[in-house]
Amino acid sequence: MALGRGSALVVLLVCFLVIHSELAQAAIYTVGGAGGWTFNTIAWPNGKNFKAGDTLVFNYSPGAHNVVAVSKAGYGSCKTPRGAKVYRSGKDQIRLARGQNYFICNYVGHCESGMKIAINAV
C-alpha cells in the first residue's frame, strides 16, 4: 500500500515541476518598446522569437488608442470582426496563444497607419 502512495506522490511532483518550468520560461514583451503601442509598430515583432504563453504588454493613452485581437482577415482589412475582443485600459496584458496572433488599433486610420502587429507564437 505504501508503494502506491509513494508512486502517486512522485507523479504529482513530476507534474508540478513540468508545469512550473513551462511558466517560468514565459517572457513578457512591451509592444513598441519604450514608445509603446503607437503608429508604425507593424515591424516591432521582427527578429523576436515568441512562444505560446508569452505576455504582450500594450501601453498607450486610453481614449487615444485601443487594442483589438482580430483574425487574419481583420488584420489584413483593418476591420474589427463582430465579437472581437477590444481592450481599452491603456495597460493591457495579453497572453499569446500558439500559432498566429493578430492585433490592431481600430480607431479610424490607426491600423492603416501601421498600428497593427502579427505574431506567430510557437
Rank of each mutant, 00 (worst) to 15 (best):
N49E: 15
C105N: 00
C78E: 02
V68A: 02
C111W: 04
G83Y: 02
R88N: 13
S77H: 05
F58R: 00
F58D: 04
R88I: 14
A84D: 04
E112N: 10
G47L: 12
N59D: 10
V57K: 05
A52C: 07
D54F: 05
W44T: 08
G99T: 12
G109R: 11
A73N: 04
Y75L: 15
G74D: 00
N66C: 13
V108Q: 13
V67D: 01
K72H: 03
A73T: 14
R95M: 15
S61G: 03
N101Y: 07
G63Y: 05
G99M: 12
T55I: 15
Y102V: 08
C78L: 04
L56S: 00
Y60F: 15
F103K: 03
K48T: 01
S77F: 08
V86Q: 05
N106Q: 12
C78A: 03
I42N: 08
S77K: 10
Q93V: 07
S61C: 14
G47M: 12
Y60P: 13
K79C: 05
K79M: 14
G47P: 08
K51C: 11
F58W: 08
Q93T: 13
A84W: 03
G63L: 11
R88M: 10
Y102W: 14
R95W: 04
C105Q: 03
A97P: 01
C78G: 02
A97E: 07
A69T: 07
A84G: 01
